[in-house]
């Protein structure tokens, strides 16, 4: 979701590469309806890329299969990767400038310096 598009001269700034130094798994109740409504809003390739970065690629198909709304197994995997895997420490890296946005204590810092905008 996040992008470095705010940096000057950056065209797309997406997807950001996730470097996960510390990951925490949390437990959240599965809401099938919510996840299936969220899927069409996601950029599937970016999601796969993000999953890959945090070591969960093996769980997901390369393209979004049709009829995903009723594929509970897939929706559960998405639920896990979207909501339960939390990067506590690490960084997000801009694909164009390699500018790194640090993640500390679970909070990504997307602020830019005045000379970067």
């Amino acid at each position: 979701m996040l992008t470095s598009k705010g940096i000057k001269n950056v065209k797309e700034g997406f997807p950001l590469k996730i470097q996960a130094d510390e990951v925490k798994n949390v437990d959240i109740d599965f809401d099938q309806d919510f996840i299936s409504k969220m899927v069409p809003k996601l950029d599937w390739n970016a999601l796969i890329f993000a999953a890959q970065c945090v070591g969960h690629k093996e769980d997901l198909p390369d393209t979004l299969p049709e009829g995903y709304e009723n594929d509970e197994d897939l929706l559960r995997k998405l639920h896990h990767i979207l909501l339960e895997v939390e990067v506590i420490n690490g960084c997000l890296e801009c694909p164009e400038t390699q500018r790194k946005f640090p993640i500390s204590n679970g909070i990504p810092n997307m602020l830019l310096n005045e000379d970067e905008v």
Binding site: M1, K5, I107, M110, L111, L112, V117
Partner: peptide, 24 residues
């Protein structure tokens, strides 16, 4: 509570005119 997430950013700069956030 676990169903929450925080981002440090300038609200207007990060989300305004960003198609990816549009009606998200």
């Amino acid at each position: 509570v676990d169903n929450v997430e925080l981002i440090k950013a300038d609200v207007t700069r990060m989300m305004k005119d960003q198609p990816r956030f549009h009606k998200f």
